[in-house]
Write a protein that binds this DNA or RNA. Structure first.
Lengths: 186, 186, 186, 186
DNA sequence: CATGAATGAGCATTCATTCAT
DNA sequence: TATGAATGAATGCTCATTCAT
């Protein structure tokens, strides 16, 4: 909600720099010293704002995930098929505007030590998403409904992963693939 | 599939132990000392067989990927739809019998530094897979054919990721999800 | 012995807080930041009043040692034995009313780096004390007189140390021990 | 119990160097890097033998205290007064041959953080000593006996402290002072 | 083949001190 | 006076790698 080019606070600079570097090099391969150098602040400064490197990571992830989650709401009215289309559009829009975060995210979630740090957040995020997706399917057969939601989640996840991890964003025609999915569910 | 209880060579023990520990703790969080301790060999021994830690990783991944690739062939004859079904069955069988490796794999491929080490192998693997999947679709519209293949690859990828990264293998009903996919492509 | 509730000056608060924390945690284990937090002042404020952490320590010790020294005078008249008794009473009274300082003192004087900072003060303090104690003994044999004074100094020192460093003030019956000393010198 | 000049192991060198430097500079003012440099080994080597800096300190202290304790036994027979004389002789002999350790000891025991690490050992050591000293006094009045023992302990402690902390061993005539104590208890 | 002692560069973190406001 | 953001040197510790045996 910032307006104008208010002088970015050191804290913000650190967070933004860290996100970028974590995404580019991986968390474990990004020393604090590198973040500090890139952000043009002293190494020690980080510790005024964060308990440690893990706390910095946690803040970055939690903050981004909150933003993401709120941008993935879909209209409550409309046909299931329309909602699905809206959802996919939202997802694609979001991942295209936040590629750094998603690269970081996919690099992190499979790291075992991160589970201890952020496992709860990840699980909640997924549960929320699956729960939303369930609303796209026929509730008369709950088992099938759940499997459908899980599959759709996996599809979206697979597409996003392919896109986020491709060496170059242009290499994966995410819009075409999205349309193809929409077709399948028509 | 070992025959007899042939005394496992140190080399084999190291590779197997490393795969397990890399999968459990992540590559960067698995010191050589830990592998040595767990494998009951001296720390220095690893350097007889491998140039270093990265070479060990490379060997593990290349070896497993070769095995995987050869187990994913599908019959050259048959209807597209039957081939797709056979393919999915193979994939699911394979990931269920090799969860360790796939956990490692999904934890690794998103790590930027691994790209330098194994990027070529990963790209080839994916290219091969996509190329195989293309044969399931109508060749008269090559663009659509490619998009369909990419989507199917992402779907399979998403399902495998969900399965491999779930805290517990039982939490993701991979068989049901697979059937659901087959249904969609019928 | 404060009169009124005169708003304690920041300087005084800092000194008092530092004494308490130094005594409780040791000088090297008490960061400036901790003193500032506990004293409810900004970290930087200390540097208005003191050149640095060592200067703060020096002030605390010198101030307390001056107070102590002046409270340890004994009557110039009276029998040696009476003067000794008076001296011991003064010492015990003083240490009981200032345990914080003495805990700090005994924790500091054995720290080598403190010698450079306060060695002179400590040596003077000890020289003064020994010189006073010499007056309790027969001057006709100066060597014996000196040894007696040194011994008495060590005794007092040993008792005070035992008392100040005991986990709990009640654990060392300093009054009884004092009487026992007086008896010996009767 | 080493005989010959068997090539000193790195471990031993580290322990000996550490004891000397801890005594000279204080524990907190002796970086691992300094110990390594002085011992002519790599910094990391210490961590093969000790969990960390504190473990190194603990080993040094425990080892020395065990040696000390066994060298302070006194004959079970003999008059109390003779036992006291023997005890004092032992103490003085021991402290003169181990000045480094005792300087360290007196610098440590008053450091609060050491209490957590070695408090138990220190308390046991003192309890043992006091218990031994009690045997020098008349058991018919247990209270007086205990006070006498505590006093004697404090005296010995005071003398040893004076000796160990004197800038120069020659500055404190420990033998004369000892004789003076023996006289007092005659 | 195998061992494990030894190395040294690299990392996260702490903390006394400075300085703009 | 007073604040607290910022600095940067120093410290304990880890770990991939080497090497003598």
């Amino acid at each position: 909600m910032e307006t104008k080019t208010s002088p970015k606070s050191s804290r913000t600079t650190i967070v933004e720099t860290a996100l970028e570097l974590f995404a580019r090099n991986g968390y474990d391969r990004t020393p604090i010293s590198m973040i500090a150098r890139e952000a043009n602040v002293a190494q020690g400064l980080m510790y005024r704002y964060f308990t440690g490197k893990e706390a910095l990571l946690k803040e970055i992830v939690e903050q981004s995930m909150t933003e993401v989650q709120s941008s993935l709401k879909v209209s409550t009215s409309g046909l299931p098929h329309e909602k699905l289309e809206e959802y996919l559009n939202n997802v694609v829009r979001m991942i295209r505007s936040n590629r750094d975060f998603w690269t970081l995210f996919y690099g992190l979630r499979s790291q075992p030590f991160v589970q201890e740090l952020l496992g709860k957040e990840f699980a909640d995020f997924q549960a929320n998403a699956v729960s939303l997706l369930e609303s796209f399917f026929d509730p008369r057969d709950p088992d099938a409904q759940r499997v459908e939601a899980l599959l759709l989640y996996s599809i979206v996840d697979g597409i996003c992963t392919s896109y986020a991890l491709a060496p170059n964003a242009d290499l994966y025609p995410i819009e075409d693939v999205k349309e193809c999915v929409i077709d399948k569910y028509r």
